[in-house]
């Protein structure tokens, strides 16, 4: 599969959304709404659930399943209040010693008037520093599109995993082609050069694990439950200081050895 095919697969309408992942992997999910400041962003789904016997906080970006839900979730592009809601829930997770699991599927943080006016940049920046200092295990899973800062804002984690057909990039291939080459028809080429597939990213040391999609999604969900459970238990066993030091070093080393 070419890079562009992965991009298309990651965006496919029939790809499972956040709610399917949540209800297939976890039990007892209770959704909790709002950023206590401005609004409840429906693109960001947050709440508490159980991963087998472990209570966990879930922070997920939801694109929606049909036109109606996609309109309500703004097609999975969160506003600043979405990131503030996510950070609020992650801080609560820390308070109660719950691990955090983030599920990421977004073309990017929303680019609009309201989003800018309410500080999209500041909201993402706060999420980055907030997650970096979170004194509880954090596991991020890219399920579909990982669009730039809007995805990274939920991916400052102890480990970052990707589904086989998920993509993760600094910019969309379309955006890259039009900005760099002023030529939207060179999208395929941009996709290739951006190194945005799960395999590329594992080679670059940006992600830890790729979840195969060779079987149907029922099996993907089962495997995720198994592997997430094992990993979260391992992370819970680490002393808190070590957890945060490892998280810092995980990002510290990327691009840290100039040639």
């Amino acid at each position: 599969m070419q890079a562009i095919d992965r991009v298309l697969a990651a965006r496919a309408n029939d790809r499972p959304g956040a709610s399917q992942f949540i209800h297939s992997i976890f039990t007892d999910f209770i959704e909790l709404h709002g950023d206590r400041n401005f609004a409840d962003d429906r693109a960001m789904v947050t709440g508490i659930a159980k991963l087998r016997d472990i209570p966990v906080t879930i922070v997920a970006i939801e694109k929606g399943q049909d036109t109606k839900t996609r309109l309500s979730t703004n097609f999975g592009s969160p506003h600043p209040e979405g990131y503030r809601k996510a950070l609020r829930q992650m801080k609560l997770a820390e308070k109660f010693g719950r691990p955090v699991i983030t599920l990421i599927d977004t073309s990017g943080a929303f680019c609009g008037l309201g989003a800018e006016e309410r500080g999209q940049g500041e909201a993402i920046a706060s999420s980055l520093t907030g997650m970096m200092s979170l004194n509880t295990p954090v596991l991020a899973l890219l399920t579909g599109e990982g669009g730039s800062g809007g995805a990274l804002a939920l991916a400052v984690a102890d480990e970052v995993w990707m589904l086989e057909n998920a993509v993760y990039s600094v910019i969309s291939p379309e955006g890259c082609a039009s900005i760099l080459w002023k030529d939207a028809s060179r999208t395929e080429e941009a996709a290739r050069h951006l190194k945005l597939t799960a395999q590329d990213l594992q080679q670059l040391g940006v992600i830890e694990r790729i979840i195969s999609e060779q079987n149907d999604f029922e099996q993907v969900f089962a495997e995720l439950q198994e592997t997430m459970y094992d990993r979260i238990r391992g992370l819970l066993d680490l002393p808190p200081g070590e957890l945060m030091e490892n998280r810092y070093q995980r990002f510290r080393k990327i691009g840290g050895t100039p040639l």
Binding site: A125, L128, T129, M132, S148, G149, L152, A155, V156, Y168, S169, V170, I171, C176, I179, L180, H193, L194, K195, L196, L201, L204, V206, R247, Y248, F251, R252, I254, G255, G256
Partner: peptide
């Protein structure tokens, strides 16, 4: 853009 995901990761690194 020319450094792809590695540029994006610098946002997390500097924030840390």
């Amino acid at each position: 853009m020319q450094e792809g995901i590695l540029s994006l990761m610098q946002m997390a690194k500097t924030s840390g």
